[in-house]
């Protein structure tokens, strides 16, 4: 079964069509990037897939569950790390993780075990008792991703996870994201082409709400006739 299958997925806001008849398939365990310039429809697509907004028409199946008729089941298997750092600033790192475990219905002992394991794996132990609002941007992003991972989602949505971070913090997060590959399906949106190329198994390029093409980074470079991924992206978007 595919992790995600969209069927003519469409979203219109009054006279603007943000996503227009999107048909794409994401395989299990894949790291799949959605690329496009501003207004291409990436964020709206993610919002529909995560139940934040309802499609105007069409549907999407996440592990076979419809976003129209079975959103509760969909929400139980997904997690989102939004574009902006979405942490509770006056709670400690551990309390933020407890919060996410709690809203997913984990018992106290389950939550404690998972937090200890995940915190150790992500190196959050050294800031465990610090308030999230006092952390640096890089640590806040790391926490933000940990908050999405704590419930062991089957599908993880990462919206611009490294936006505004310095080179070192970005590199660290790349390692973290790479380590997730295979254990869950990851949908990534990013404006950084080198990030998409370095991390993605496959990418989809959107333009004006429509799907231009999907393929591996290598296939996309071949199709554009260039060995630079960012140049390939620009060329295909301009021609598309």
């Amino acid at each position: 079964m595919d992790a995600i299958k969209t069927i003519d997925l469409t979203k219109r806001y009054k006279d603007v069509t943000a996503v227009d008849g999107l048909n794409l398939t994401v395989r299990q365990g894949e790291l799949f990037s959605l690329l496009g310039v501003n207004g291409a429809g990436k964020t709206t697509t993610i919002k529909m897939l995560t139940g934040l907004t309802r499609p105007t028409s069409g549907d999407a199946l996440l592990n076979g569950k419809s976003i129209l008729t079975d959103m509760a089941a969909v929400k139980a298997m997904i997690a989102v790390s939004p574009q902006e750092t979405a942490v509770a600033p006056n709670l400690t790192v551990w309390e933020n993780l407890e919060l996410m475990a709690g809203v997913h219905g984990f018992s106290k002992s389950e939550a404690k075990d998972k937090i200890a394991e995940l915190g150790g794996r992500l190196g959050l132990g050294e800031v465990a008792d610090k308030r999230a609002g006092k952390l640096s941007g890089g640590w806040q992003r790391r926490l933000s991703i940990a908050m999405a991972l704590i419930t062991e989602p089957k599908i993880l949505f990462l919206d611009e996870p490294t936006l505004g971070l310095d080179v070192l913090a970005r590199g660290e997060l790349w390692e973290l994201i790479r380590a997730l590959k295979g254990s869950m399906t990851v949908i990534l949106t990013t404006h950084y082409m080198e990030e998409a190329e370095a991390l993605s198994d496959r990418v989809a390029i959107l333009k004006s709400g429509r799907l231009l093409l999907t393929g591996t980074p290598a296939e996309i470079k071949t199709r554009a006739g260039t060995d630079k991924f960012d140049q390939a992206f620009v060329k295909l978007v301009r021609e598309g």
Binding site: K75, P82, E84, T85, A86, V87, F157
Partner: peptide, 13 residues
């Protein structure tokens, strides 16, 4: 404003 709610809207709450 912080998109904190956006994260929580995608949970079973």
């Amino acid at each position: 404003g912080r998109a904190f709610l956006q994260r929580l809207y995608a949970t079973p709450l």
